[in-house]
Design a protein around this nucleic acid. Structure first.
Lengths: 401, 401
DNA sequence: GACGGGCATGAAAGCGTTTTCTGGAAAGGC
DNA sequence: GCCTTTCCAGAAAACGCTTTCATGCCCGTC
């Protein structure tokens, strides 16, 4: 097992100003700590303390009315090309940027969408935000993030605070942020997309990962390469994904390995619960041929337990996970798993939301599902010996029957 | 090496509505696809299509003027307890939430901060956002994220769009978003905190990771456990962190292993560049005793190269990385590395920014540095055989000399 | 040559707040 | 008992924008 020591806190007073005392000095304090008064940049319209130009300044500069400026800059027509040019130049000269708040006050559009999510570490969060942000930008929308809340009150407060600051919202469900919570706290009339949520939450669209199909396909693969006695390590009971994955497993086993008695040990998605599950499975009188963990972290825990017990993976026991976290590729042996295309999930959620915003009621109260891939690496056995390190092949696409 | 195959796209039409065709059906379409007209919830003040109560509605409901409502709800005093109670009740009854845009129009405060970052995957991004968001919330601020842009124009557009929507901004530098870029695009007067940036960018505060001290300390450790010929795998030349790390390495070697000729091979922070560097180092006539990669991904690449060549790590060659990405713990042998406390970086950035916002000019144009820990695992040799899996000890704290 | 129809432009209303200013009532001091 | 002070509450201005409406002006048409 890994033992680890941390040498350090170098620089315990880890937060210090330029002129620090250690030898490891990087920045000397060439920079004096004085406030540089921002220079005014208004062209003809100096206004004392005003630091940012308004539409009035532009109007004055271009010698037109504010109405014309608005029309010209918004391309609403009704301005001669010459006037428009004059206005655009004036605006550029003044570095005019319309005041968002003022604009949305009258427009009722903020061009911002909210993202509400539980306190989340790691890849999942970042990929999701990435997908959402990317797509939001392509829709001309900004992204107001409120992550990192655990409690329901926390989330409720965040939701309330978003009131009126966003045109719509993407919500990633968690045990605390469930259907009931949403029913109570989601302002109706606000377009919303629910991720990984139980259905039936008001007029919101719902987008889920196809946990069921993912587990099903992995079981199919495991059975296909000759494993019959497949044990499952389940996730926390209050987690929606976990429940769906378990349901998928049960359904798949019933169909693909009928007659086998089900072996399910419970975990909590944490590495150590996987470790414990691994030990428990090894101790059972009839050892499973394969272990399928409801997420990768637990699979990694299992793997650790197997390694310590000197059990060869996949020789003596096969192993599979779910999520395809980056770590999955780097453990030994590399872990077979079900890949969730998280960024795509975010993108699709954003698309759905944009739709909801632009055409109220269009896809409301609909339920969508995002499929998964299964990624076969070495841990699950039956591996058709590939050679190159990073080849990624999609070898077939199961008929959805 | 790892070969990997992807079986799947289950459900290639991966984005489909409830009533899907596959057997893996999860949601049946109990939910009809109709738009539920949001119910009005205004108390005494039905107003046709109005769906959200304004301060006027509250005033009418409580039979006072809007001014009093504002005063009462903002705790500005000047209202009798009874009136205040009446107003609060009316507001609650109407589910009144002040309109953010209107408020910030007059207040000039948006209670929102922006985060501008390059297109970033993985732990670093999520942890950073997490740190920022958490601290922002504790300051009563919201977080407007704009990540995922690569080009300078992209970032400039994002910056412009944030104009007036935020009270301040945290900017994570990247090769494209450098000092020159900021000079040109950062509106002055807008409080800003620069992360991992060259200094001297207007009136913004700068917060950096102490790359220099981190590398220095790791070299000290490597030398301490008996390695003399330490090779360095550098990062991309246009990356600030990479340059600092290399500088730290050079300085440390000059001081701690004087006379040793420096061996530095260049990489680009990518895994495969680390792999190539590993091969190159193995091929050299005098093989280094230790390899220190400027980040973990390259160290992992090196490790792969060493493994394939049948070189034992740390037996024949020691290895260290930088960042402490999650993967570092899971490779075999576990990777020694320099830990960057990313969430803390975000938190500190946010604190700095809040300070800048609340007391203009307070800590402007200052430079701060966040220290790192070094994490000793098995890959760097000289490992004092620990036993328990997850012990984390801070065994000493180097005198900063 | 008078008239109507576009069409470019300006004036002004209004979005939902906060805040200043003003009014009036109650309270207190002589 | 009158005047000053204090205190609560309302009227109204202001924030920066969009949009409607009104106003001319120019042009074509009869």
């Amino acid at each position: 097992m890994t033992a680890m020591l941390i040498i350090g806190h170098l620089a315990r007073c880890c937060f210090r100003v330029a002129a620090k005392v250690s030898t490891n000095i990087l920045f000397t304090s060439l920079h004096e700590n004085v406030y540089v008064q921002p220079t005014l940049r208004l062209g003809g319209a100096e206004r004392g303390k005003q630091v940012t130009a308004t539409i009035k300044d532009v109007a004055r500069e271009a010698k037109v009315s504010v109405a014309s400026v608005s029309r010209a800059l918004n391309g609403a027509g009704g301005v001669t090309p010459e006037t428009e040019k004059r206005i655009r130049e004036a605006a550029a000269r003044l570095r005019y940027v319309p005041h968002g708040a003022a604009r949305s006050l009258i427009t009722k559009r903020t061009h911002t969408v909210g993202a509400l999510m539980p306190d989340l570490h790691g890849e999942f969060f970042s990929e999701l935000i990435r997908g959402i942000d990317l797509e939001a930008r392509s829709h001309g929308l900004h992204l107001l993030v409120s992550s990192s809340h655990d409690g329901a009150e926390d989330a409720a407060a965040a939701l309330r605070a978003m009131q009126g600051r966003v045109d719509g919202i993407v919500i990633l469900s968690s045990p605390r942020v469930d259907a009931a919570f949403l029913e109570a706290n989601l302002p109706d009339g606000l377009p919303a997309v629910l991720l990984n949520s139980e259905v039936k939450a008001g007029a919101a669209a719902v987008l889920n990962i196809d946990n069921f199909a993912g587990t099903y396909a992995m079981v199919r693969h495991l059975v296909g390469v000759g494993h019959d006695r497949i044990a499952f390590v389940s996730g926390p009971k209050d987690n929606f994904d976990a429940r769906q994955r378990e349901a998928g497993f049960r359904a798949a086993m019933a169909k693909l390995a009928p007659g086998t008695s089900l072996r399910i040990v419970s975990g909590d998605f944490g590495e150590s619960s996987g470790y414990r599950a691994g030990l428990e499975l090894l101790a059972s009188k009839v050892r499973p041929q394969a272990v399928f963990a409801a997420n990768d972290m637990m699979a990694v825990g299992c793997l650790q337990a197997f390694k310590e017990a000197g059990i060869d993976v996949p020789g003596e026991i096969a192993l599979a996970g779910f999520d395809d976290i980056p770590i999955a590729r780097y453990v030994t042996p590399p872990l077979s798993t079900v890949r969730v295309r998280i960024a795509e999930l975010g993108k699709n959620a954003m698309d759905l939301l944009a739709d909801l915003i632009n055409r109220p009621g269009s896809s409301a109260a609909s339920v969508h599902t995002l499929g998964c891939d299964i990624v076969v690496r070495e841990s699950c056995g039956g591996h058709r010996g590939g050679t190159s390190a990073t080849t990624t092949k999609k070898i077939h696409r199961p008929s959805n029957r």
